[in-house]
Each structure stands twice: as structure tokens, then as C-alpha cells.
């Protein structure tokens, strides 16, 4: 019985009978109680405090002002680009972890999650030291004659991508690796025996079977990036302004909870639309 067959098989009551959506009830109820209702409450409050005309004005302002449209587009673009970089950088690592580590696998996983455990402020501090104008990386490249004047990395958006990818790529690697490990290696070996080149075997067998992992990793990376602001705040010299950063400003400077709620709701809606489209697309190929 092949894998492909079991995916396309018509639904039958096997296993533990969780084919329906009944099992999702506790999670759905929990999120309605502690995620949806607080946000609805928050939005209603913003309408009451500002008067509903002012609250609707906030939405109009967000969608008619070219500045905010630019920020929204940039937010999605930064998340998309970061996700793609994480896939490209992360997949080979996941592949190596699953296929080529015998005893060292657990050790490498320690190394992989260590960055996540170091507080974000200190991680960014580390980058500030490393990427500084006369920091070690710049000096080293100067010494080897690879550049002829000090790098201004910290002033450019590049440093934001350094920071974002550094924090998020472990999620991509672990998501892909946990799926890749359940891919039957014999399928790949069979393709090799049947005369496929190693690259072709990877491209036609291994990669398609690990799609669920890439999807999971992409969702986590995309959505986390969409909602984060500390890296954008501390790196790149303020050159990458995204929606979460504007929300943060409303809290610390302007105290306009209504406009913050407006931007939050728009950001949530856009992220969910992207997520739904992504899930629909891969659904057609057999993965939720």
C-alpha cells in the first residue's frame, strides 16, 4: 500500500475515529474564549471610547493613505522574503540532521534551539557588536582585502534580515526535520536503484514527501515575522518600518488604543487570508 494511495483514499472510519472535527472542539472553544472575545471586546471598546464614527475613520485612514498601504505591503513583503530565505537556508540543515547524523543529532538540535533561548535583546546586542562599522566582521573583511571601506551593515535593512532569519530559521529546520524523519527512506533508495540520479531522486521523491514540513515551517515563520517588531526596532537603523512597529508606537507614544486595535485587526485579517490561501493551495496536493 503506497503512501500516495493512502492519501487519496476516500474517508473511512478507521483508527481512533477522529475523522470528524469533534476533536477540535476544546481548542476552538478555548481560543474563542481567550483569543477572539478579548479582541472583539477590545475593538468594541475602541468604538465606544472614540465614538464609532472616529473608529470607522481609523479603517478609512489605513486603507486610503498611501503611507499606510506602503507599510502594509512592506510588512507582508518582509515576512514573505524572510520565509523564502528560511526555506532555502533551513532545508539542507533539516535534511542533514535527518539523514547524516548518527550520534550527533541531539547535539545539533541543542545548538539549533540555543538562539531561541537567549533573550531577544541580547541576541540583537550580539549582532550590533558583530556587524558594527569597526566590528569583527567588517575588520576581518578589510584585512583580507575583500572590501575597501568599513561595512555600514547596521544602517541597512540587511541587518534586519540577519536578525529575523537568525531567530526564525530554527523553527523552519525543526518543522521540516520532524516531517522528513517519517518519510520512508526506502522510497528514495528505490528511485536510486531504478536509475534516478541522486538530485532527481531528491527532487521527485524526497522533496514532495516533505512538503507538509515546509508548509508548517513557512506558516510559523511567516506569521511570527508578521507579528514581530523588536528586531525591526533595534536593527536596521529604523529603515524597516512594519505594521507591528506602528502598533507599538501607538502604545508607548500616542496612547491611541483605538488606532492600535484597528491596525492589529487589519494585520490579523491579512495574515489569515495569506494563511488560508496557502492551506488551500497545498490541500489540492494532499496536505492540510
Amino acid at each position: 500500500m503506497s503512501l500516495a494511495e493512502s492519501h487519496t483514499r476516500p474517508k473511512r472510519r478507521v483508527g481512533w475515529g477522529l475523522q470528524g472535527l469533534g476533536g477540535t472542539l476544546p481548542a476552538v472553544i478555548f481560543l474563542i474564549a481567550f483569543f477572539v472575545l478579548p479582541l472583539v471586546d477590545n475593538t468594541i471598546n475602541s468604538f465606544e471610547n472614540d465614538g464609532s464614527a472616529a473608529a470607522i475613520d481609523n479603517y478609512v485612514r489605513l486603507f486610503t493613505d498611501s503611507y499606510y498601504i506602503e507599510v502594509i505591503a512592506r510588512t507582508l513583503w518582509v515576512s514573505l522574503l524572510s520565509t523564502l530565505i528560511c526555506i532555502v537556508l533551513g532545508y539542507p540543515i533539516a535534511y542533514y540532521l535527518v539523514r547524516h547524523t548518527e550520534g550527533s543529532g541531539a547535539f545539533l538540535i541543542f545548538l539549533l534551539v540555543a538562539p531561541l533561548m537567549t533573550s531577544i535583546i541580547m541576541r540583537t546586542y550580539g549582532w550590533q557588536i558583530l556587524l558594527a562599522r569597526n566590528g569583527p566582521i567588517s575588520n576581518w573583511l578589510l584585512d583580507f582585502g575583500l572590501i575597501d571601506r568599513p561595512l555600514a551593515t547596521l544602517r541597512s535593512p540587511v541587518s534586519v534580515y540577519f536578525g529575523v532569519v537568525h531567530i526564525l530559521v530554527p523553527y523552519m529546520v525543526i518543522s521540516i526535520a520532524s516531517v522528513l524523519q517519517s518519510v520512508d527512506r526506502r522510497l528514495e533508495e528505490a528511485a536510486l536503484i531504478l536509475g534516478a540520479s541522486r538530485w532527481r531522486a531528491f527532487w521527485r521523491v524526497t522533496l514532495p514527501l516533505s512538503t507538509a514540513g515546509i508548509v508548517t515551517g513557512s506558516i510559523i515563520v511567516f506569521m511570527l515575522c508578521n507579528g514581530s517588531f523588536l528586531t525591526m526596532l533595534l536593527l536596521g537603523n529604523g529603515s524597516v518600518v512594519t505594521l507591528p512597529l506602528l502598533i507599538y508606537q501607538q502604545f508607548i507614544l500616542v496612547n491611541d488604543a483605538g488606532f492600535a486595535a484597528t491596525m492589529g485587526n487589519v494585520l490579523l485579517f491579512l495574515a489569515l487570508a495569506c494563511l488560508y490561501l496557502q492551506l488551500r493551495t497545498v490541500r489540492g496536493r494532499g496536505h492540510v
Binding site: F35, P38, G227, F229, I247, L272
Partner: peptide, 16 residues
């Protein structure tokens, strides 16, 4: 449903 259950990921947490 899956989209809904993953929604908290994209909410800026300061707002939540």
C-alpha cells in the same frame, strides 16, 4: 478551522 487555530501566531502580542 486550521487557519483559525493558527491565528494567534500572527497577532502582534502586545495587542493581545
Amino acid at each position: 478551522v486550521m487557519t483559525f487555530l493558527l491565528a494567534p501566531l500572527s497577532m502582534p502580542m502586545i495587542l493581545l
